[in-house]
Nucleic acid binder design. Structure first.
Length: 875
RNA sequence: GCCCCUAUGGCGGAACUGGUAGACGCGUCCGACUCAAAAUCGGAUUCCGCAAGGAGUGCUGGUUCGAUUCCGGCUAGGGGCACCA
């Protein structure tokens, strides 16, 4: 018997060193085997890895190791998303330089990651805060600038008052900064933008070319891009003295079918006409100020009263000669969407109706449900927003909503207003340009020089990188670059006069928008990418990360890749061919008698179900069991990966993170779960030990095996192998592990039955079983597998071993058990040859006792036979 | 408000394109080993019933020989967007 316990602590570090010394995970770009690029979202170097990292990287590692074993040239790199706010906050609080803080964190996290035994190519490690990385980012910024993909414009932007910086729309969640949680304010500032909207249509369309992305993520991006088709209508101002320079108002609508019901026009408080009018009207000026004061938070918008200002202007209705429509300025119209002006059709839009009722503008219903009588169909306080039949609408009468919309647009396009069409079809997007200026120090400097004479001048390419100055202070709020005594003062590269550097840095999401491309050739100095190399690796075959980046990082990267393509840095448009979004690691929360959070290890749990009780270990006082939530330090429901690896080993941590829950769902951390995983490691170790004692020697050929008991073992093994590889292929780690456990149980039982004294044939089959079993679990538990492999006598490294080939004839059963149903309910089973013909199967089934009993000598009404599946007798 | 997803034993979950519901694990119970405990091993574990048998995949209706799976209506939980014209 092989009774010694497996000791992960010694074994794991031993194999990690051997892998390292042999550089077996270093990937060559000129390797002739087919490529496979697997990547997990790189971490922010916060200082410590957490269980979420372990889960994320364990998944990627299983894929990487599996694909390696399958004979592919796998690229599996790791790096650091190293710029960002926490480093600056640490600098402010602890008087440590962001660079030093970041590099220390990288060092300790690297050590932690290495202890997990990931098959990473550390020779390709990059950190985005390294000038050798951001140099190329600055080069691409300039390339994008020349290509018109970078623009500088004044716009309403989101200002995070805590982080003291601007945020992109995607980085504002529920009106709050994604990192600080502070309620975001609106400010009008001149900023740098990436022209992501120029790719809006393409970014939307191409989602259809990504079948290996979760539908949920594609949907979220679709909604975020928010395409809507409509028409831009020109309304002629028919007042005698319109504001200077304005003779018409453009309005975007998706409901031109309701045009006959128009009762007012509403302009945004930021609309040029509103601004012009306000210069000579103090009351209006005050109204505009008041409108802008309104918060943009969810609560503020829901409760904000819809308010309007009558401009006394009117416009001509495009379809009803002689009818004029009043023009209001309204606090709910956004300047950023469409043309900053809407027409109101109160009968068919609730908000318009509320507004019209408030200002007594009336309503004319023009769409009715087909069942409704036009004579009696009136609108009072509830707008009819559904589709229907047009009435009260001149040439649109009787048409359906969609047909009427088409006709209305046609009429507008053919109609004439001062020598041009009255309207034109237009597609509008919700997506806004990506504002990348950040008023922060710890980011990639924007390589632009502002000259009073020449404007914004690109920094000369040979001066890149524009490095961050090291001598900065964090004793005051604001951007240290702005107040640095010398850094920003330079000569204009164009005219040589005194000029200033741009002191804003780039959004850190820029850094992470192309790191996957840099990994393909991370040391090339004179360009961001080596075209031959990057084109041979991209797209990433399998990308794995959290759902929280569904529209942030994942949309930015899709844009950036397109921009890189447009400027000649890559050939692909889509960076990630396959995407997998893993669930979070969650844990129950506990609160002590004083309402403060309590660590799980300080809690004693009793009972099950609704009678579960929790008490404090120290003094037995009552503990409230809270919800199961994402692990976070503030709620004290964290489990430190280091401790788990110390106590149970990395393999056990990896196994537990992958078993039980499907990888895309949250996994609940439980002490019992880890112990169960640890137990299974020991079981495997024991089983392999027992197999070693009885199985045939290394490299023996099981092909000659004839004894049926040995063939049973072989079938078991090949069937499991087939299933496990299928599960790995589809990233179903939980079911792969279940299958491995099943095989383990079966082999244990087999060994028990033969009392550890197999025949010669059985010994051959067991040798195969042992080798295959170990290979099968190696992607999940690589250290244990490597140790078992060596124990089985192999001289080579398991990490270099090939995935065994499934023998189809063995994986298929030749005798199968088929359920027999009577009227759709299972009543019996029969064991038959796999390839039995339907007639014989029916004959056998009808002779079964429960069937005969049910038939009572009558003949069945119908017999349904699905080959290899089921027999259903209808009586 | 709009859009989307999910719902299976005490718990996490499994079930390929409609074909034996509950794989695998956790927990619990019983037993073995032990002076004892831990560890380990064996067995049981959807519910009702002594049993034969019956019921059962959130609720409800439908399609089908047959529905966890497809369709309609509801309920609950979760997520995304949000004054988007």
């Amino acid at each position: 018997m092989f009774s010694d316990r497996y000791n992960p602590r010694d074994v794991e570090s031993k194999w990690q060193k051997i892998w390292d010394d042999n550089q077996i995970f270093e990937t060559k770009n000129d390797d002739p085997r087919p490529k496979y690029y697997v990547l997990e979202m790189f971490p922010y170097p916060s200082g410590r890895i957490h269980m979420g990292h372990v889960r994320n990287y364990a998944m990627g590692d299983v894929v990487a190791r599996f694909k390696r074993a399958c004979g592919m040239n796998v690229l599996h790199p790791m790096g650091w998303d190293a710029f960002g706010m926490p480093a600056e906050n640490a600098a402010i609080q602890n008087n440590v330089h962001p660079a030093a803080w970041t590099h220390d964190n990288i060092a300790s996290m690297r050590t932690q990651l290495k202890s997990i035994g990931l098959s990473l190519d550390w020779s390709r490690e990059i950190a985005t805060c390294d000038p050798s990385y951001y140099k190329h980012q600055q080069k691409m910024f300039l390339d994008f600038y020349s290509a018109g993909l970078v623009i500088r414009k004044k716009a309403k932007v989101n200002w995070d008052p805590v982080d003291q910086t601007v945020l992109a729309n995607e980085q504002v969640i529920d009106g709050k900064g994604w990192r600080s949680g502070a309620v975001v304010e609106q400010r009008e500032l001149t900023q740098w933008f990436f022209n992501i909207t120029s790719f809006a249509e393409e970014l939307l369309e191409s989602l259809n070319t990504l079948p290996r992305w979760p539908e949920k993520v594609r949907l979220m991006q679709r909604n975020w891009i928010g395409r809507s088709e409509g028409v831009l209508i020109r309304f002629e101002i028919n007042s005698k003295n319109p504001p200077a320079g304005f003779s018409e108002i453009e309005v975007f609508t998706t409901r031109p079918d309701t045009l006959f019901g128009a009762k007012f026009l509403a302009l945004s408080p930021d609309h040029p006409i509103a601004l012009t009018l306000a210069t000579s009207d103090l009351g209006l000026s005050a109204f505009l100020d008041e409108s802008r004061m309104n918060g943009t938070s969810m609560a503020a918008m829901e409760t904000a009263e819809k308010k309007g200002w009558d401009t006394k202007l009117t416009v001509a209705h495009p379809f009803i000669p002689g009818q004029s429509v009043p023009v209001y300025i309204a606090n709910f119209v956004l300047m950023e969407y469409g043309s900053g002006a809407v027409f109101g059709c109160p009968a068919h839009d609730q908000r318009d109706l509320d507004f019209a009722n408030k200002y007594d503008l009336g309503n004319t219903p023009v769409v009715r449900p087909s069942s409704q009588d036009p004579e009696t169909f009136v609108i009072t306080t509830t707008a009819y927003e559904e589709d229907g039949v047009l009435f009260n609408s001149g040439f649109l009468n009787g048409l359906s909503t969609s047909e009427a919309a088409k006709r209305a647009i046609d009429a507008l396009e053919q109609g004439d207003l001062n020598g041009a069409a009255r309207g034109k079809r237009q597609v509008n997007f919700r997506l806004r340009d990506w504002g990348i200026s950040r008023q922060r120090y710890w980011g990639c400097p924007i390589p632009i020089i502002h000259c009073e004479a020449c404007g914004s001048v690109p920094a000369p390419a040979d001066e890149l990188p524009i490095e961050l100055p090291a001598d900065v202070t964090f004793d005051r709020l604001g951007n240290p670059l702005e107040r640095h005594p010398t850094w920003k003062f330079v000569a204009c590269p164009r005219c040589g006069k005194n000029a200033r550097r741009e002191t804003d840095t780039m959004d850190t999401f820029v850094d992470s928008s192309w790191y996957f491309a840099r990994f393909t050739d991370p040391t090339i100095a004179d360009a961001p990418t080596n075209r031959t190399v990057v084109d041979s690796w991209l797209p990433v075959d399998q990308y794995i990360g959290g759902i929280e980046h569904a529209v942030l990082h994942l949309l930015y990267s899709r844009f950036f890749t397109r921009a890189m393509k447009a400027t000649g840095h890559v050939s692909v448009s889509e960076p990630f061919a396959g995407l997998f979004t893993q669930g979070m690691v969650v844990h129950e929360t506990y609160k002590g008698p004083d309402g403060s959070w309590v660590l799980p290890q300080d809690v004693c749990l009793d009972g099950i179900g609704s009678s579960r009780r929790a008490t404090l270990k120290s003094d037995g006082s009552h503990v409230t069991i809270g919800g199961i939530e994402k692990m976070s330090k503030s709620k004290k429901n964290v489990v430190d990966p280091d401790e788990i690896i110390q106590d149970y080993g990395a393999d056990t941590a990896r196994l537990f993170m992958l078993s039980d829950s499907p990888p895309d769902r949250d996994v609940i951390w439980s002490h019992e779960g880890v112990q169960g995983a640890g137990r299974f490691s020991q079981q495997l170790w024991r089983l392999v030990g027992n197999l070693v004692n009885v199985c045939a020697p290394l490299d023996s050929d099981p092909g000659s095996v004839e004894q049926s008991s040995a063939l049973v073992i072989r079938r078991l093994v090949h069937r499991a192998l087939l299933r496990v590889q299928d599960h790995y292929e589809k990233l179903r780690f939980n079911t792969a592990i279940a299958e491995i456990r099943k095989l383990t149980n079966a082999l244990n039982a087999t060994l028990g039955e033969m009392e550890n004294t197999p025949s010669a044939d059985e010994a051959l089959a067991l040798r195969e079983a042992a080798d295959v079993l170990v290979v099968m679990f190696s992607p999940v538990m690589p250290h244990l597998a490597e140790e078992c492999w060596s124990r089985l006598g192999h001289k080579d490294l398991l990490s270099d071993a090939a995935w065994p080939a499934v023998i189809d004839t063995l994986a298929q059963e030749d005798t199968i058990v088929i359920p027999v149903q009577i009227n759709g309910k299972k009543r019996a089973e029969i064991s038959v040859p796999r390839d039995i013909d339907n007639e014989s199967l029916e004959r056998l089934a009808l002779k079964l006792e429960p069937v005969e009993k049910a038939l009572e000598n009558r003949s069945p009404k119908k017999v349904i036979i699905v080959p290899q599946r089921i027999v259903n007798v209808v009586v």
